[in-house]
Design a protein around this nucleic acid. Structure first.
Lengths: 344, 344
DNA sequence: CGCGAAATCGAAAACGTTTTCGATTTGTTA
DNA sequence: TAACAAATCGAAAACGTTTTCGATTTCGCG
């Protein structure tokens, strides 16, 4: 009933605990004979090292923390999956906590993870977060932290990102290329770096093509769990405000699908009346009618890379090596579908 | 730089480690004066108990394991969210592992969690799983385990479920009530209890209404990440096989949406030609055209309840009390939308 | 056989906490 | 003031592992 310990193996074999421990870890200073003997009885008694004791001794938990703004979110789900898969390969566990896009909660969650002594932290920042002391505090304690997707440029840690500005530029340029002259933008919240960058990419594309930038064509949405509704509302509002708009670049696919739904309901033809490009390549974007042109954002890959970088830093730290923060930029691509078309 | 320990607090105060420890836990045998003193210096030195040592001493990790077939899944996301939220309230962490619907992987993940000494396990079984020794092994080691959604009736542990049979009956009855005479079923895989139950509910509703059960009207789909495609394929196949079908009860919303997409493409009118009812009330079901009638399945609630039950058992076990497995059944409801209508 | 080197082993400390139980001090009452 | 109860404290063991360092044994070789 009681779990088997090194001591019990030692007793049944009439050798010391030390030797048993060393035998199981293939230390060179224990003879092959006893090594084999120990292995066998350990297997026979179904020995499992007590991870609590190992943790205490080695000061490692083989566990990392993951803080995410929102678990119920398709893109983040794929990131989580990438992280978990990669962590498992390296024998790490992942503890997931949510920030609910709240700065206070984010701080609390970091605190919890630190008191739990996770070996490292992966984080995508909350929309609210504009102060980063809680992050730098972690770094000051020599605990590696890697940001992904929603990052802070000012913090000097490793990051896994896409070039949001470039991607948004690509999306907007595509609208222009297919003939749009007056292009609106449904942007995300004001603080997060990626919604800023997407906005800037949109703006730059306009200016590079000698199209005037009109701030009244920029609509804000939270991109919360109400995204879909926001898309509908913004679409309705846009129709009221500007009858001349012929294209929209939208911050996320879900908002875009909300907008499409609203346009469909009102008999606005896509892409004949209005062309739309979304962002993230959520699988539903190929299911909606019309199918949605969008930017492909590699979530799984992002999770995978984020863990890989964290793992590198964990190893470096263990060997007392210097770690240099690294910025990993993943490629995005434009996926052309039916919501954008060159009209004759 | 080094984290402060009880010992250091004791030294700065010239008292024993014992007293410090007891003071921090409000033991009655330390005077109020020293208790306050200890608290203050602990706060001042920013003392954090070393969780590794606490774990080792108390044999608790305040961590539970969660095994889920697939993280990238809207329903499971909401369950995860419910679990994490509730766990946090009680000071528990959640380690998430995926089974990818594989029995072998599920076994391995349980093994990992056991070796990590999680305090308890929450699990939704993989489709492949038909042997349950790995589950009963956990129970034999007095580690509480609670199943949710995809459960095994034969295993005597606590479960949080819905009445899939009743819900499916409701869905099918609704199709019949709106005038359908020949109703197909896109069912899930053969092994999981819930897809069996949904099939049985469908069948019973037919028979209770004196409609013949025709096994050729039952189509199987994996409900994997290819769900959407499967919906399209099954829909296309159905049109080839049976031109007289006027209603379908579909195992999940995502498959249903795939089917709707296919029907839309082919000019089949919903609900005029074919009525459709899905399952789970995924938010996209109110976004698709036409909106999808479905069964509301309370994911968040299910996660919350699953953790609550596990927590109860953890507490009972700590107090050496007997634990009685409990089956918690959550209510479902029919959500009527545009994909089903009584036609005049 | 003797000597040094190499191979093999084990005692013990350490990780930081919790908790038992005995020791000491303080307070109370006759 | 003596005697006892109550309050307050601390020594030490325990949780199970890892690792250092010294002790012992074995071996090779002259």
């Amino acid at each position: 009933m009681k779990p088997v310990t090194l001591k019990e193996i030692a007793e049944t074999l009439n050798i010391s605990v030390t030797t048993v421990s060393k035998a199981l870890k293939d230390y060179p200073d224990v003879s092959k004979k006893t090594r084999k003997l120990v292995r066998e009885t350990a297997a026979q008694l179904n020995y499992r090292p007590n991870s609590f004791a190992v943790n205490l001794r080695t000061k490692e938990s083989k566990t990392i923390g993951l803080i995410i703004p929102e678990v119920v979110h398709h893109f983040f789900s794929t990131v989580i999956k990438g992280i978990i898969a990669q962590a498992e390969k390296k024998g790490y566990f992942v503890i997931i906590l949510q920030s609910n896009e709240s700065y206070e909660l984010e701080k609390k969650q970091i605190d919890l993870l630190m008191s739990k002594h996770v070996d490292g932290i992966l984080i995508s920042l909350a929309n609210e977060t504009s102060d980063f002391k809680h992050i730098t505090d972690v770094m000051d304690q020599d605990k590696p932290i890697v940001m992904f997707d929603k990052i802070a440029k000012i913090v000097n840690c490793s990051k896994v990102i896409i070039d949001d500005r470039k991607a948004a530029y690509m999306a907007t340029q595509h609208l222009i290329d297919t003939g749009c002259k007056r292009i609106a933008h449904f942007r995300g919240p004001l603080l997060p770096q990626n919604s800023i960058d997407r906005f800037l990419g949109y703006k730059k594309a306009l200016l590079d093509n000698d199209l005037p930038y009109d701030s009244s064509l920029v609509y804000i949405c939270d991109c919360s769990d109400k995204s879909f509704e926001e898309g509908k509302n913004n679409a309705a509002q846009l129709l009221k405000d500007h009858s001349d708009v012929d294209g929209i670049f939208i911050n996320t696919d879900m908002v875009a699908i909300g907008a499409i739904t609203e346009f469909n309901k009102r008999g606005i033809k896509i892409p004949e009346d209005i062309s739309i490009v979304g962002f993230s390549n959520w699988f539903m974007s190929s299911a909606i009618t019309p199918t949605l042109s969008t930017i492909d954002q590699p979530g799984y890959q992002m999770g995978k890379m984020a863990f890989k970088q964290l793992y590198k830093e964990l190893k470096a730290l263990k060997q007392q090596k210097e770690v240099h923060p690294k910025i990993i930029e993943l490629e995005t691509s434009l996926v052309k579908r039916d919501s954008t078309k060159t009209l004759i």
